[in-house]
Amino acid sequence: MTTAAMTKKGGIAPKDGMPSMLAYLTRVLKMPTIGAFWEELAGQARDQNWSHEEYLAALLQRQLADRESKGTTMRIRTAHFPAVKTLEDFNLDHLPSLRRDVLAHLATGAFVAKAENVILLGPPGLGKTHLAIGLGVKAAHAGYSVLFDTASNWIARLGAAHHAGRLEAELKKIRRYKLIIVDEVGYIPFDQDAANLFFQLVASRYELGSIMVTSNLPFGRWGETFSDDVVAAAMIDRLVHHAEVLTLTGDSYRTRQRRELLAKENRASNG
């Protein structure tokens, strides 16, 4: 069915053909939300005496909101987070060292737009991975593509590409993501070949795309992880040049939960 077949002189569909006309137009223009809600909003517009402009704006806002919501859902799905965690669910009370204003700024995603980095350092159990995922989710909501993985998995991915003779192609593919998250640097030591691959990942994104890194080790011990102090220093230099470095201190939430559980059991037994 064509628009010509559905219209009379002047290009306007007859009243009884309007639903078919709009169904066709919204399908061709790829605006399914308008196709689904124009009639409902038209009734609301008549009841509330909206102007034509107000009705049009309401339809377009509904379409845009739906499109952004679906886009965000897709970006979060393709980020491959191990679990979707939000900053709102994170208990900041046990991390007095974390500045709220810095976290709020990072949550805007402005650092991604500037191709800046974020480094989260601190002992295990402080919630670094939760914070990294939460910031990644915020970036996805802001419209940025995100890809998450552990340091060991990033090395495995690059190693496979290198052995297949397509490392440059893989690095180029990774550069399409505005933000990559490298979790758990320092938990597993890497040999020199792995360190060189990781350095190439960092170098390939320098001032071009954002990297977020979590590590249980201070920078001074990264040479132990990457088996080469020189490579580690060169890597750190590129990471921190345009970066927000957050050094976290506090009690492990797992240790704290265990302590609270034991205290609760003691109170119950003494009662």
Results as ranks from 00 to 15, higher is better:
14 P>K: 11
228 D>A: 11
21 M>V: 00
42 A>R: 06
52 H>E: 11
207 E>A: 07
87 L>G: 10
31 M>D: 06
196 N>S: 08
234 A>Y: 03
143 G>T: 02
209 G>W: 07
201 L>S: 11
39 E>G: 10
81 F>H: 07
54 E>K: 15
40 E>N: 12
87 L>H: 09
15 K>W: 11
225 T>M: 09
67 R>F: 03
91 N>C: 00
58 A>F: 01
204 S>R: 03
65 A>H: 13
142 A>V: 00
87 L>F: 01
203 A>P: 00
145 S>F: 01
166 R>D: 09
54 E>H: 06
206 Y>C: 01
266 N>D: 13
224 E>L: 14
246 L>W: 09
48 Q>P: 00
99 R>C: 11
81 F>R: 05
267 R>I: 09
35 G>T: 05
100 R>C: 05
178 K>W: 08
157 R>G: 00
202 V>N: 04
28 V>S: 15
112 V>D: 01
11 G>P: 14
33 T>W: 03
237 D>V: 01
209 G>Y: 04
209 G>H: 10
235 M>K: 02
124 P>E: 03
254 R>Q: 12
121 L>G: 01
218 P>L: 12
117 N>R: 06
204 S>N: 13
238 R>L: 12
255 T>C: 14
35 G>Y: 11
179 L>Q: 05
204 S>F: 06
124 P>K: 04
62 R>W: 01
232 A>S: 15
38 W>M: 09
89 D>M: 02
198 F>C: 07
96 P>H: 03
160 A>M: 14
29 L>F: 13
100 R>W: 08
61 Q>G: 10
209 G>M: 05
249 T>W: 07
25 L>F: 15
59 L>W: 06
107 A>I: 02
137 V>A: 00
176 R>L: 07
48 Q>E: 15
210 S>K: 04
123 P>I: 14
98 L>Y: 08
107 A>Y: 01
256 R>Q: 08
93 D>H: 04
112 V>N: 10
225 T>N: 00
19 P>Y: 11
82 P>I: 01
22 L>A: 00
220 G>S: 15
176 R>F: 10
147 L>I: 09
179 L>C: 02
